[in-house]
Simulated assay, not measured.
Amino acid sequence: MNDVLPYRTMAYNNAWANHRLLTACERLSPDELTAKRTGFFPSLRATLNHILIIDHFYVDAMEGGTLGPAAFADQEPCATVATLKKAQAAVDQRLLKVVEALDAAGLQRIVSVHRGTSIQRERMDRLLLHLFQHQVHHRGQAHAMLSGTSVSPPQLDEFFSAGEAPLRAAEFAELGWTEEGIWDSNAKT
């Protein structure tokens, strides 16, 4: 198996799950989006913005940037789901571009993560795994919060489920992807 393929598929799954979750959240009223809920962050909006902020922080580092703690300057940069969805899609595309450019040596490359008073040096593969874990953790919290609203939470944990094929095909078309393109490490989706 290609060394990079698992990271590619996780990056695509990550972007798809974000798309699905935010598409569902678009149906929330502004009050439901900002209502106090049980979770690490006090609302769906705060949780979804946190996902976005951390993505900016780590993807910038993976791209060789020095954004660092400036990523945390505004804890809720997006007031609406529409702006969140657009911003999240943009950072997801940046992450896909990073992962698409990787090879086996790139997975071992050391990334400098600017933390303000220090610079953390971490291998790309470990940083990617940390970022994917972070995403799953907080998307799960947002998913649970969404269950307490008028909007049913979408399925997020069956990336290539046969029963989801028609819906997946429509969503992939929306995103400009194909299933073959995701699994074929030589193809560009």
Rank of each mutant, 00 (worst) to 15 (best):
L84R: 12
E100I: 04
V81D: 11
E63V: 05
D74S: 06
A82R: 14
W177H: 11
D184P: 08
P77D: 02
G181W: 00
A82G: 15
V99D: 06
S152A: 15
L127R: 07
A71V: 06
Q120D: 10
H130P: 10
A71S: 15
R139Y: 08
L107P: 06
S147C: 12
V99L: 10
P69T: 03
T66G: 11
E174Y: 13
Q133F: 12
H137Q: 06
V113G: 01
T66C: 05
H134S: 06
M62Q: 00
Q108F: 09
M62H: 00
G140I: 01
P153E: 09
A90V: 03
A173S: 15
G148Y: 11
H138P: 01
Q155M: 05
E174I: 02
F172E: 01
A101G: 14
E76Q: 09
M124G: 13
A79K: 09
I110S: 14
G140H: 00
R121D: 09
H134F: 04
K85I: 07
W177D: 09
A142C: 07
R121L: 04
V99Q: 01
D92N: 07
H138W: 05
V81C: 10
L84P: 03
T178H: 02
E158H: 13
Q93R: 03
M145W: 03
A104E: 10
D60Q: 01
Q120K: 04
L167Q: 13
H134C: 08
Q135Y: 06
A70R: 09
E180I: 07
V91Y: 01
S147T: 08
Q141R: 01
R168M: 09
R139T: 01
Q135T: 07
S150H: 13
L67F: 00
L167C: 02
T149K: 05
E174N: 11
A104V: 01
L96D: 07
P153S: 15
M145F: 13
W183A: 09
Q135W: 00
T117P: 05
A82D: 15
G181V: 02
V136E: 10
V111N: 13
R121W: 02
L129S: 12
H134Y: 03
L156V: 02
L102A: 09
P69G: 10
E164R: 15
W183I: 03
Q88E: 06
K85V: 01
